[in-house]
């Protein structure tokens, strides 16, 4: 008799527990430098979602190179949301896997990029080589560290920023190509990812200047000392828009669509924007941007659409096989 009662009580208990709070899980597949950002953001979202829907949500994270992460999702990694380094990588989810609709970028405000960043220079203490702008990077004897644009999303932004600077200053695509070729002759180490380059520059002492994401540069300062690694803002840089999207096919299968949407929308909320700014990303919300204006210097920024006609074209011209990046090495 006794075991039966025990069993029934157990079953009843399990049933009540299940009704009270559903533990749910979300997988956010992201790129390398956002780790610190999403640790803080996920905790805030869990609190928000508990208050709103009553469920206990755990957000699992996966980080890696942006292109590699996109490929994993295309190959079947069950990501509810992707938060990658560039729109081009999210486009691939549509082109290669039909996981999301073609017009994904219009589903959320401001090109589905809730926060932005840009490209800056990190130099040695006291800036011994006197680096102020892109021109200083092609001088003989200046050693540059940047990741490989073929394997790193951040490095594509670096490359395009340098290209656009030269095109505006010297007036032609041909001149821009020469400029960039000259610049890459000065590159001492081409790491495969942005974090790898940071380590090479900071830990190994290689290079006079490191072309970096702004948020990555701030983080390096925070970790290793502000005076040791001063940041230099070039006269022209690029507006880097790391975009986000839900993965429609996965959320529909898992039944997490509403929560995944709320997760991304929460990035645009005041709290989400505040967290982004605290983690060195430029917030979109103007009030919060104003609050952090002392941190983020006003810079002259171009967008990928106006300067290069969008990611599809930029990738084809510059980074595909036989593109300009290949040409500058194989003369």
């Amino acid at each position: 008799m006794k075991p039966k009662i025990l069993l029934l009580t157990g079953l009843a208990l399990a049933a009540t527990l299940a009704a009270a709070a559903k533990p749910v899980q979300l997988l956010n597949v992201s790129y390398d430098p956002t780790r610190e950002l999403y640790v803080e953001f996920n905790a805030a979202f869990a609190k928000y979602w508990k208050a709103k829907a009553g469920d206990d949500v755990t957000v699992k994270q996966s980080h890696g190179g942006s292109g590699k992460q996109a490929r994993s999702v295309i190959d079947g990694l069950q990501a509810d949301v992707v938060t990658l380094a560039l729109a081009g990588d999210i486009d691939a989810l549509h082109e290669m896997g039909k996981l999301i609709p073609k017009d994904w970028i219009q589903r959320l405000p401001q090109n589905s990029a809730p926060y932005t960043s840009t490209i800056v220079f990190v130099v040695r203490a006291g800036n011994p080589k006197g680096i102020k702008d892109w021109d200083d990077l092609v001088k003989p004897g200046v050693s540059v560290v940047t990741p490989n644009p073929k394997t790193s999303g951040g490095a594509m932004w670096n490359y395009l920023a340098a290209w656009e600077f030269a095109r505006r200053k010297y007036g032609s695509e041909e001149k821009a190509r020469e400029f960039v070729a000259q610049l890459y002759k000065n590159v001492a180490v081409l790491d495969s990812g942005a974090r790898g380059s940071t380590t090479t520059f900071v830990q190994r002492g290689i290079g006079d200047v490191f072309i970096s994401w702004e948020n990555e540069a701030f983080l390096a300062q925070k970790e290793f000392g502000k005076e040791k690694f001063p940041i230099v803002a070039p006269s022209l840089s690029i507006l880097a828009e790391p975009s986000v999207s839900i993965v429609d096919r996965v959320v529909r299968k898992k039944g997490t669509e509403a929560m995944a949407k709320a997760y991304l929308e929460f990035l645009y909320s005041d709290e989400g924007q505040e967290i982004a700014a605290r983690n060195f990303y430029r917030p979109r919300n103007e009030a919060i941007a104003a609050k952090y204006s002392s941190r983020f210097v006003k810079m002259n920024l171009v967008t990928i659409d106006e300067a290069f006609g969008g990611w599809a074209k930029a990738k084809r011209v510059h980074f595909a096989d036989g593109g300009t990046f290949d040409q500058i090495y194989v003369q």
Partner: peptide, 22 residues
């Protein structure tokens, strides 16, 4: 692996993650 923290990370992958987090 897919690099899901606490789920599909083996020791070597976890080491990489820790290193990348400084």
């Amino acid at each position: 692996s897919g690099h899901i923290r606490g789920e599909t990370n083996t020791m070597p992958l976890h080491i990489e993650i820790l290193y990348n987090e400084y």
